[in-house]
Design a protein around this nucleic acid. Structure first.
Lengths: 340, 340
DNA sequence: CCAATGATTGGGAGCGCTCCCGATCTGCGT
DNA sequence: ACGCAGATCGGGAGCGCTCCCAATCATTGG
């Protein structure tokens, strides 16, 4: 396959055109110090006149870095991809990267073949580090990256004893405080709609739910737990199911704001008033939480902070060459609105 | 910033280890012909033993290609990003690329600065071609890429006289046949919920709507047109608004299946039966269209074909060096279900 | 006016791979 | 056993950049 781009001017040509040496031009385009102002201007002019653009492959080869990081989504089924959580994270990572001069590349890994291809891409040095979203329990990719000594940061962890670097939220605490709040509001039959239980985060929130009940001396019943996949649709379905099993439900903790929105619809369809009959709490505190009717009480996850923390960890690993794994757990916060 | 990865074995080392020349190893890893089977095996073994992975920067520099293409989303506001249309397209492109050996990289361009950064990345040779999604009227990126002589293919066009290569659907025809179908079903007060009107596709569908009415000798009224941004939420809002303006509406063409789903909810809330009182038609024919109640009649867009066509055009441009622009308009098809 | 000191600059030596041409091998016909 | 066309191989010549050290210039103090 012969794909080649027409002759772009090279650094050497710019140097000749500006009557300086290669080194000087290099210094200018990397705006390094130690170039006389007049020289810099002359070089800049040559660059503009020739329309010079540095060849990144060459830079990468000589400089041993790619100036890019990959954000990998390993989601065999794409539903989650369409959820706001994803776009919020991407935005936040993008913002956190803006002043590092690195490109953020999203990659989708759906099959084993795609995983292999991505590994070759990453191990081939096209990225300096890898960010992984929503890693499910048992996903081997993080280990493969670690083995290749590629700086890697997970969003969430695969299990309680994850070693690879990660940023996670205090899911247990968030869920616990949400459920405690329901109890404080006098609710006694509290159900929860969890996320996919092969996500450790979902497990943690379920634990927080259990803990809060235990703290209040209430018994946790498995029939009051329904699983969802974070979509509104699955939230609606889960809520309907829960209502059938326990018509006396008066409080619900949902897996996300989206799921909560679905639950609200199911409740409305079932003729329940929120919060009078049933109190509902979401998770995330995305803009959506203010657009529902009634506005959602929800557990706020500091998404911007997630992005910043992930990038910080990644940069540290790149700096120090992956000598240690670091973990950051971000605090969550209950935001009380109208639905409780 | 000193990011470097530990010493990966080089091709040269593999060659030494296998007691062959560099060229031979190169042939093996690119599985070119002209290598004796026994030699190939020996080299392969050396590769495995050393855990060799080719350095892509070097390959890229020497081979003058990147083996990667970028899919760019230029969406200042991310709502659309979360819509299924996006993930469907990505899936379809991913599938179309699987056997070309190229990586698909998604990039998000929200601001001018990000656009500039991406341009440098692309012009720097990190990708062999660019795919652009949902280009709004007046977006300068396609022109900048064309000027840099980068193979580029748009999904949709910016206006009727787009020159850059693109793949588009027959939006006018799709909308026209949908509205004609409504008329045939005896509907007389037909409204439409359009997409953002700075998208040429939305304009085209509106034209199709007008044409179908004209064909039936009916007058198109601007008050029967409401704009949406493709989300369910905006569909609901638009439908509510239309119902207020024209309580006698008996048919609606929506901007997408998602929008139609929102419209269905608004209709239900207003106590209208579908299809008895109001017939509704969506656009896309995504899985969602079968999950609504009632199932949606919708205009099918051949998404898999879109992916294949975009990749085909891109490969052609890469092959021939962008000597011409190519356009492909895919046929749409009305799928009749329960909502009409 | 001269040496010393620090600011600038030039350019050699790779980075690891692909391309490609000339050298070496092989097998076959005579 | 010898010659020759193909089949295989080896390795030189870059690809365009960064790193870094030695060379050159500009300044300053005495």
């Amino acid at each position: 396959m012969g794909r080649r781009r027409p002759g772009t001017p090279t650094l050497e040509e710019v140097a000749a055109h500006a009557r300086v040496g290669r080194g000087t031009v290099s210094r200018v385009i990397n705006n390094a110090t130690g170039v006389k102002e007049s020289t810099r201007r002359a070089v800049q002019q040559a660059i503009d006149e020739l329309g010079y653009v540095p060849n990144l492959a060459a830079r990468s080869l000589a400089g041993r870095r790619a100036d890019a990081v990959a954000l990998v989504m390993t989601e065999p089924d794409w539903r989650q991809f369409a959820e706001p959580f994803f776009s919020e994270i991407v935005t936040s990572l993008g913002d956190a990267l803006t002043d590092t001069g690195m490109q953020l590349l999203l990659t989708l890994v759906r099959s084993g073949a795609e995983r292999q291809r991505f590994l070759e891409y990453a191990r081939g040095g096209r990225v300096d580090g890898v960010l992984l979203m929503s890693v499910h329990a048992g996903d081997p990719l993080p280990d493969m990256l670690a083995e290749a000594r590629l700086p890697t940061v997970l969003l969430g962890r695969r299990s309680g004893d994850e070693y690879v670097s990660y940023v996670d939220m205090d899911n247990v605490g968030g869920a616990r405080s949400a459920v405690s709040h329901l109890i404080q509001r006098g609710r006694r039959v509290i159900a929860t709609i969890t996320g996919p239980l092969d996500l450790h985060a979902a497990q943690c929130r379920l634990r927080g739910y259990d803990e809060a009940l235990a703290l209040a001396g209430m018994k946790a019943e498995r029939t009051r737990v329904a699983e969802s996949d974070f979509t509104a649709e699955s939230g609606r379905r889960a809520m309907t199911e829960l209502l059938e099993r326990h018509p006396d439900i008066d409080g619900v903790l949902a897996a996300s704001d989206t799921t909560a929105a679905g639950a609200l619809e199911a409740l409305r369809a079932a003729g329940r008033r929120v919060p009078e009959d049933v109190a509902v709490i979401g998770f995330d505190d995305f803009p959506l939480a203010r657009r529902t009717e009634p506005q959602l009480t929800t557990v706020r996850q500091p998404i911007e902070e997630v992005g910043r923390a992930m990038i910080r960890l990644l940069l540290e690993e790149m700096e120090e060459g992956a000598v240690a794994w670091r973990h950051v757990i971000l605090r969550t916060e209950l935001v009380i609105r109208e639905s409780t």
